[in-house]
Amino acid sequence: MLQDFLQFTFSGLTSGAIYALIALGFCVVHNTMGIVNFVQVDFVSLGGMLMFSALFALGLPMLPGLLLAVAGVALAAMLIERFGLRPSRSDHHLVLIFLTVGLSIILRGVMKLAWGKNRMALPPLTPDEPIRILGATVLPQALWILALTVAAIGLLTWFFYRTPLGLSMRAVASNPTAAAVVGIPAGRVRLTSYAVAGALGGLAGVLVTPITTLSYDVGVLLGLKGFAAAILGGFGSFPGAILGGVGLGLLESLSAGYLSSAYKDVVAFVVLLLVLFVRPKGLLGK
């Protein structure tokens, strides 16, 4: 029983780390622009697609391919913000949210034209030799997911608390009016927020697709779960995004293991609804 519990826990932590990365991307854009960026779900798919091309079309090794894929998604996100959102003549948040829905559909269509509709596969970052930990079997890719997620969270923390641009983004998130008065460039902050969100989504796609399948729409379900994790933790809260992602992943894995895999999505979202009924702002929301 202990081995089973550990097996389910490791699986839940692996999924939860991916959800946390996606949720952090949602929070970054929300805190600087005040909107829900539904293009985030397609950044996950685009990361996997660019990684596939880097490995098999360009013939790059694994590490350069990973860096190129993440940087490519960040660049695509900046182009989407600059030429897709910024020209909008409306500052109404609801209009911008619907605009991100349209941009998401467009990006998904571009990926379908570029890479096709067939499902593909990515190799793991290192050879897939299972590792035994206290009787439970863990794939090296799962350990890479956990390690790189922790590294990304640490880098994100350093960026927001130690760099001038990160401090500017925190200022805009805290008080947009005061930030504008002191001359913080709003356009630069919005562009950076999209780049960070794109990098986080791209990293999630690169890490998760070796243990799932790769297609132009693979990020939709993952992105929705990342969105649910952000709401569960408290939309806009970075610690809440991490807590919500890990909690949702563990809940899915334990419910699949002890109840049925057919109900894991249902159980996760039912608990999400119950939490929101009790605390509408999420676990760590203010």
Rank of each mutant, 00 (worst) to 15 (best):
S88C: 10
R119H: 01
G84H: 05
F160E: 09
G116K: 14
M51Y: 10
I97N: 05
A77S: 12
T149S: 09
G166R: 13
H93Y: 04
R89M: 04
K117E: 13
F160K: 09
L63R: 03
A152S: 06
L94N: 08
L125H: 00
L60F: 10
L50W: 05
E129R: 10
L96P: 02
S174N: 10
L155F: 05
Y161N: 13
D128K: 08
P87A: 00
A57M: 01
R132N: 15
A76Q: 08
M169W: 10
I153N: 03
I133S: 08
P123G: 08
V70A: 15
L134S: 14
L50A: 13
F160M: 14
L66Q: 03
R162I: 11
G109E: 12
I80Q: 12
P87N: 00
V110H: 07
M111H: 12
T100F: 05
G102T: 06
A151L: 13
V73S: 12
I80D: 11
V95K: 05
M49W: 06
I133V: 15
F52A: 02
A152P: 04
L156E: 07
G65C: 05
F52M: 04
P140T: 02
P124G: 03
I131V: 14
M169G: 05
L143N: 03
R119T: 14
M78F: 14
L103A: 03
E129T: 11
I145L: 02
A71G: 03
T149Y: 07
T157R: 13
M62Y: 00
A173E: 12
V73P: 09
P124M: 00
K117V: 14
T163W: 06
L134F: 15
H92S: 09
G59N: 00
L139G: 03
L139I: 06
I97K: 08
P140V: 04
A151F: 08
A142E: 05
A57D: 12
G154N: 08
G166L: 11
V138A: 07
M120N: 10
R132S: 15
A71H: 13
V95W: 03
A69V: 05
L67I: 12
A147K: 06
I80N: 06
R119Q: 11
F83L: 13
S53I: 04
L143D: 01
L165E: 11
L63F: 10
P127Y: 00
K117G: 10
R170G: 13
M49P: 06
D128G: 02
